[in-house]
């Protein structure tokens, strides 16, 4: 039986090597490429098309794993993709589903192994966690935030003013202020700055567009 051709895309060498280890330990899979940047993932498809891509989302070189996955899906719809990340940024699950990524795996918190997810994905199953992992932000649990609050938090981490946040999300500045106030009350943080920085550090709110511009 032909082995399933796998491509790994992850900027962390240790993560790549762990994934490589998983693949080499299985007889079903064959590693064809192990790439450090999502920006060039589609270039490798010129040489050989992968059956399965394990794609990290947040890259150090400011390339965007979800964008690269979308490009691959558009050009090679038969290739299956598993998005992997250690960040609890909730919107990535939804975005991955919209792109048509088959499965989603949290590196540190998902109970199933990556191999298990790979097997189920190749069997035609779509493996997604029910929600992003819960993390602590100050006194609050990340599950205590509403969708809108997380959207606002994400834009705030880019350094946007309340007016700019409101304009971007199509809501009034007062609404933004009200949500920020609620989040400060929930977390116990003293300032908007502290809230934005802590949210960014734990990975609860990451703006991939802003990440690309850095």
């Amino acid at each position: 039986m032909n082995k399933i051709k796998v491509m790994i895309v992850d900027d962390q060498s240790i993560s790549r090597q762990l994934f490589e280890m998983y693949i080499k330990s299985s007889e079903k899979y064959e590693l064809i490429f192990s790439v450090a940047s999502a920006a060039v993932a589609d270039v490798y498809f010129l040489k050989q098309r992968a059956d399965l891509v394990i794609m990290d989302i947040l890259m150090n070189d400011s390339s965007n794993g979800l964008e690269a996955a979308e490009k691959i899906k558009n050009q090679y719809p038969c290739t299956k993709i598993i998005a992997v990340t250690s960040m609890p940024e909730y919107s990535w699950i939804q975005r991955a589903k919209e792109i048509g990524i088959e499965s989603f795996w949290y590196k540190e918190t998902d109970e199933g192994t990556l191999l298990d997810v790979m097997d189920r994905t190749m069997a035609g199953e779509s493996v997604y966690p029910d929600s992003a992992p819960s993390v602590k932000l100050g006194l609050a649990d990340s599950t205590e935030f509403t969708r809108r609050e997380l959207e606002i938090l994400r834009v705030i981490t880019t350094g946007a003013s309340n007016a700019a946040v409101g304009e971007f999300l199509g809501i009034s500045e007062n609404t933004v202020k009200s949500h920020v106030r609620n989040m400060l009350e929930k977390t116990g943080y003293k300032s908007r700055t502290e809230l934005a920085i802590k949210a960014r550090v734990i990975g609860l709110a990451i703006d991939l567009q802003d990440n690309e511009q850095t």
């Binding site: 947040l58 880019t158 550090v201």
Partner: peptide, 14 residues
């Protein structure tokens, strides 16, 4: 300052 911090956060996350 947040923007600048955002630029450097990647190394912390890394």
């Amino acid at each position: 300052k947040i923007r600048e911090y955002n630029k450097n956060i990647d190394s912390i996350i890394r």
